[in-house]
Simulated assay, not measured.
Amino acid sequence: MRKLIAGVVLGFSLTASAFGAGDPEAGKASAAVCAGCHGQNGAAPVMPVYPKLSGLGETYLHNQLGLIQSGARKIPEMTGILTGKSDQDLQDMAAYFDQQAMPIGKADAALVERGRQLYRGGNLASGVAACAGCHSPNGSGNEPAGFPRLSGQHAEYVEKQLLAYREGERSSGGQSAIMMDIASRLTGAEIKAVANYVSGLH
């Protein structure tokens, strides 16, 4: 498990687009259309199952936009939104959103301790690696490797994505092998707990 993660991280970071290659000012105009679902600056989605885009990391955002545009990652609500945009447009949009502040949510106190244990220490009994290993102890992510910020993300969105990884519904991109393996070992209760924890993680 640890060898798999290390190998994918190394391989992905060597092939990922150079971070910091986008122009936030150029991306601002292209990103305006996103406000209808993701809110002003990508920080206040109209529904909690939609992700906050602000501060996620330019490398991660650029990769995901590319996957969505190509159809490799299927999101019905995004159909046609990225049509006609160049790779540089996507890079600029990613740079713009990455510079926006991610508001932190408030976690459910009843789930925090279980979520904290999973996030920081994983579950040795079931072979679940600690989330902090890739996404950092404070949830700020790992920009060079393309691992997104989790701190402040809506719990409902994180839960939805972990379930999608577990069911094999989200399998595109260089990081999917890691996430599908981890999610396959998580129970529904564990997914709910760790998703709640990261929503209020500082």
Rank of each mutant, 00 (worst) to 15 (best):
G174A: 02
G152H: 01
E113C: 12
S136T: 15
D98M: 01
A101C: 00
D92W: 09
R170N: 05
G84I: 12
A132Y: 04
D89G: 02
G39R: 04
Y50Q: 01
G57L: 06
P137T: 08
E25V: 09
L118Q: 03
L10H: 09
A164R: 08
A125K: 03
M179Y: 02
G57S: 09
S86R: 06
L186P: 01
L56Q: 13
A72M: 01
V194D: 01
I68E: 05
V49G: 12
A145G: 08
V46E: 07
Y157T: 07
E143L: 09
M78K: 13
V8D: 05
L186K: 00
L10G: 09
R2S: 13
A107E: 07
G200R: 02
Q153L: 01
A44N: 12
A130H: 09
S184C: 12
G57C: 07
V158Y: 08
S171T: 14
E159R: 12
G27Y: 11
G139F: 09
N196A: 00
F19I: 12
V198W: 06
A21G: 10
Q64N: 04
K192R: 13
G36C: 02
N41R: 10
E58N: 08
S176K: 07
V49S: 15
M47S: 12
P144I: 06
Q175F: 14
L124M: 14
A183F: 02
A18T: 15
G20Y: 14
G80T: 04
S13T: 15
F147S: 11
G66F: 05
Y197S: 00
P45L: 05
L201T: 04
Q175K: 13
V194Q: 00
N123T: 09
G7W: 05
E156H: 04
Y60A: 10
Q100P: 01
A43Y: 00
S126Q: 11
R73I: 01
R116G: 10
L4W: 06
Y197E: 00
S199D: 01
P137N: 10
L111H: 13
P45S: 04
L61Y: 04
E77M: 14
A125P: 03
A6W: 10
Q91P: 05
A145M: 11
D98K: 08
